[in-house]
Design a protein around this nucleic acid. Structure first.
Length: 593
RNA sequence: GCGUCCGUAGCUCAAUUGGAUAGAGCAUCGGUCUUCGGAACCGAGGGUUGCAGGUUCGAGUCCUGCCGGGCGUACCA
C-alpha cells in the first residue's frame, strides 16, 4: 500500500518526462535491500541524470525536494534524507501512518488489498488434458499454476474466465477408434470402460511410435504390430473420418466422451480445481473448415505439399499448418477457431495459455497468425513452464519408465503426509486422513508454485513435506499456530477486529511485521506483472518469518495492555493473510496438525 | 544446422526484470530458552554467478564469442 502511495507521489515529483515513460519509471520504486536505507527507495534519478546531462545526486535531491513538498507526502512518510550513494532516494514510512494502515487492514475484509482499476476481462486457458488418456504428472503444473493465477487475478478485481480446453478432437481419438475396432477386450470394456480405453490408447500409441526399444520390451505389442504394419496410416484415417464426422466414428466418439470426463473430474475434485467453462477442442469442430477458408481467402494460408499452412517466415521456413494433406485438422486450426470464438463471445482484454514451454514455438506462430488474421488489441500470452524432473534430473518417471499417473502421485503425497501427522494422538482416524489430504496435496501444489515457473524443477516428496523451510507444511503450521492463540486466550477475534483503533510498532520486530503485512497487495501485483505465483509464496514465507521472529521474542497473550491488544491484532492479520494467500494458491489449511 | 531456454553455496532453489554487501531451506558447526504450539529463534562457515571480453555510475540480469546441457524444428498435442 505504501508503494502505491509513493508511486503516486513520485509522479508529481518527477518532471519533464513523457507520459508513456512514467510506468517504467515508477517501477523503480521498490523496497530497500536493507532496513538501514529506510523502507522504500527510488532509483530513477541515476537514469534520468544521464539524459538530462546533470549529476545524479543533484537530480535525486531535486526529486526528493519535490516529493517532500507533494500533497499528502508528509502524512505518510518521513522527510527524505540526502540522496545516498550514486543517487538513491530513500524513504521511510512514518510510524503513525504505518500503525494506522495496519489497523485499517485489520478492520478490512480485503486485508488492506486494493482492487485494480479498471478491471480487465481475462481468459485463462489451463490444464487442458488430453481426455483419451489418464492425467499424468505432466498435467500438474498447468493445472496448479493456472488455478492459482485465476484465483489471484480474480481477487485483484479482474473478471476472470477459466477454461479447460480439453484435447478431445485430435489424433489420440484416432488411436482409440482404431484400437477399439480391432483390439478391444469387450468384457474389460463393459466392466471398466476408462481402463480399457486407456489400455488401448497406450498400446496403439506404442504401435504408432514403433520405437525399437519399446517394442523389444513388449513382445506382445511387437506381435500386434507385425499383424498391423500400416497402423500409423490407418490411425490417421480414423482421425480424418472423425474430423469429417463420419457416422460410425462420431457415434463411437460420443460414447467414449462421458467415460473420459468421469476420469478427469474425479481428479479435479480432489485438487479443488474448477472451471467456468469446459470447452474441448471438439466444440470448435464446426468452425474449422471456415477458419482454413478464411485464411486462404485473405491470402494468409496456401497449399503446400498437399497440406495448407501459413508461411510466417518466408517460403523456406516450416509453415504453420492448419490442414493436413488428408483433410484432417490440427490443433493450430482448433486454437485459431477458439481465439475467434472467445473474442466474439467474451471480448477479453487478455487470453493466457498456461502450457508447457515446449510448445512456445506453436504459440509464437499461433499469436502471429492470429495477429495477421486480425484479432484486435487482445493480449495473447503464453504462460510457459518447465518440465517436472525426477531425482536423477531426467523427466519424472516410475522405476519401470512409465509416466507417473496424477492420481497415484496424489495418493503417495497424501500417504506420506499421513506419516507426518500420525503422531497426534488426539485426532481420530478420519480427521487424520482429512488433514493428511490437505497437507499432502498442499505440499505438491506449493512445491510447484514456489518454483520459478520458467525453469524445470526436481520433484521430491521428501523436500516438499519438510516441516521447515519454504514448504506448504511449514506455512500451514504457521497458520495453525497463529490461530491457536485465540482459542487458548479466549479472545473474540471479531470484536478484536471491530475495535482495532491502532496498533503499536515500538519494537523493531513489530515494525517489521507491520510493514510486511501491508505488502500483501504489492506481492499480488507483482504476481500479476509476470504471472509468477512464486512471488506470492516467497512473500508468505517472509511474512511467516517476520511473525516467528516476533512471536519468539515478544509476549502476546501475556503482554500488558495496550501491547496485548495491538499484538493480538497483528497476529490476527498475519493469520488471515497467510490463510488468504494459501487459498489464492489453491491450498487449504487445517486447525490442528 | 537453425531457433529457443538454461548454467548461481555440497544439494534443492531465490534474487523486486540494470540497483546498494548475490539470499533462503536442507546438510555441517555453534548459541538462546523456566515452551503464549520448540515443528521455534539467533548466529557461523560455505560463491571468481560455466569461461572470456564488452556496454555504464552500477551486470547473476543487457551485447558478442566460446564451453556444457534441455527443449523445439511440415502434416501429434
Amino acid at each position: 500500500m505504501f508503494r502505491q502511495a509513493l508511486e503516486r507521489l513520485a509522479a508529481d515529483g518527477v518532471v519533464a518526462i513523457p507520459a508513456e515513460e512514467m510506468p517504467a519509471l515508477l517501477e523503480q520504486v521498490r523496497e530497500t535491500a536493507e532496513p538501514k536505507f529506510g523502507d522504500y527507495s527510488g532509483t530513477m534519478a541515476m537514469g534520468l541524470a544521464k539524459r538530462a546531462g546533470r549529476k545524479p545526486r543533484d537530480v535525486a535531491a531535486d526529486i526528493s525536494g519535490r516529493l517532500a513538498a507533494a500533497a499528502g507526502y508528509a502524512e505518510l512518510f518521513e522527510p527524505p534524507g540526502d540522496p545516498v550513494g550514486p543517487g538513491f532516494i530513500n524513504v521511510r514510512v512514518r510510524d503513525e501512518a504505518l500503525c494506522a494502515a495496519v489497523a485499517a487492514a485489520v478492520r478490512d475484509d480485503r486485508l488492506g488489498v486494493p482492487t485494480v482499476h479498471p478491471p480487465q476481462t481475462i481468459v485463462i486457458d489451463f490444464s487442458s488434458p488430453n481426455v483419451a488418456k489418464p492425467m499424468h504428472v505432466g498435467h500438474i503444473r498447468s493445472t496448479v499454476i493456472g488455478d492459482a493465477l485465476a484465483r489471484i487475478l480474480r481477487f485483484r478485481g479482474h473478471d476472470v474466465i477459466t477454461v479447460n480446453h480439453l484435447g478431445d478432437w485430435g489424433t489420440q481419438f484416432g488411436m482409440i477408434l482404431w484400437g477399439y475396432k480391432r483390439l478391444r477386450d469387450q468384457q474389460a470394456y463393459d466392466a471398466h470402460p476408462t481402463r480399457e480405453l486407456g489400455r488401448l490408447y497406450r498400446l496403439v500409441r506404442k504401435l504408432v511410435d514403433a520405437k525399437p526399444e519399446e517394442l523389444a520390451a513388449d513382445p506382445e505389442a511387437a506381435a500386434v504390430l507385425s499383424r498391423h504394419p500400416d497402423v500409423a496410416r490407418e490411425v490417421l484415417e480414423e482421425t480424418e473420418k472423425l474430423h469429417r464426422e463420419e457416422e460410425e466414428n462420431l457415434a463411437l466418439w460420443r460414447t467414449f466422451e462421458p467415460f473420459c470426463h468421469e476420469e478427469i473430474d474425479r481428479i479435479y475434485g480432489r485438487l479443488g480445481v474448477t472451471f467456468d467453462h469446459v470447452r474441448g477442442e471438439s466444440s470448435y469442430r464446426k468452425l474449422l473448415a471456415g477458419v482454413v477458408e478464411d485464411l486462404q481467402s485473405q491470402g494468409l494460408a496456401r497449399e503446400s505439399r498437399g497440406a495448407i499452412g501459413v508461411f510466417l517466415d518466408g517460403d523456406d521456413k516450416p509453415p504453420f499448418l492448419v490442414r493436413k494433406a488428408d483433410g484432417g485438422y490440427l490443433y493450430a486450426t482448433t486454437d485459431l477457431a477458439a481465439i475467434r470464438w472467445r473474442l466474439e463471445h467474451w471480448k477479453p482484454d487478455r487470453i493466457l495459455y498456461v502450457v508447457d514451454h515446449r510448445q512456445s514455438q506453436h504459440f509464437d506462430q499461433l499469436f502471429e497468425t492470429a495477429r495477421r488474421w486480425g484479432c484486435g488489441p487482445v493480449a495473447l500470452v503464453h504462460v510457459a513452464f518447465g518440465t517436472v524432473l525426477g531425482d536423477d534430473g531426467r523427466p519424472f518417471k516410475t522405476r519401470s519408465g512409465d509416466t507417473v499417473g496424477l492420481e497415484s502421485l496424489l495418493d503417495e503425497g497424501v500417504e506420506r503426509a499421513l506419516a507426518v501427522v500420525a503422531a497426534d494422538e488426539e485426532m481420530t482416524g478420519a480427521e487424520r486422513q482429512r488433514v493428511a489430504e490437505t497437507i499432502g496435496i498442499g505440499a505438491i501444489k506449493y512445491a510447484d508454485l514456489s518454483q520459478n515457473r520458467t525453469t524445470d524443477y526436481v520433484f521430491s516428496y521428501d523436500k516438499m513435506l519438510q516441516l521447515t523451510g519454504n514448504t506448504a507444511a511449514y506455512m500451514q503450521y504457521a497458520v495453525a499456530r497463529v490461530e491457536g492463540i485465540y482459542v487458548r486466550g479466549g479472545v473474540d477475534r471479531d470484536a478484536l477486529r471491530a475495535t482495532c483503533g491502532r496498533v503499536i510498532a515500538a519494537d523493531p520486530r513489530e515494525r517489521a511485521l507491520a510493514l510486511e503485512l501491508l505488502r500483501f497487495g504489492e506481492a499480488l501485483e507483482d504476481v500479476e506483472a509476470d504471472y509468477r505465483p512464486n512471488l506470492l509464496t516467497a512473500y508468505l514465507y517472509d511474512l511467516a518469518g517476520c511473525y516467528s521472529t516476533l512471536y519468539d521474542a515478544l509476549p502476546v497473550l501475556k503482554a500488558k495492555e495496550p501491547e496485548r491488544g495491538s499484538r493480538l491484532a497483528l497476529c490476527d492479520l498475519t493469520g488471515r493473510i497467510l490463510r488468504k494467500g494459501l487459498q489464492l494458491l489453491g491450498i487449504g489449511t487445517v486447525e490442528k496438525m
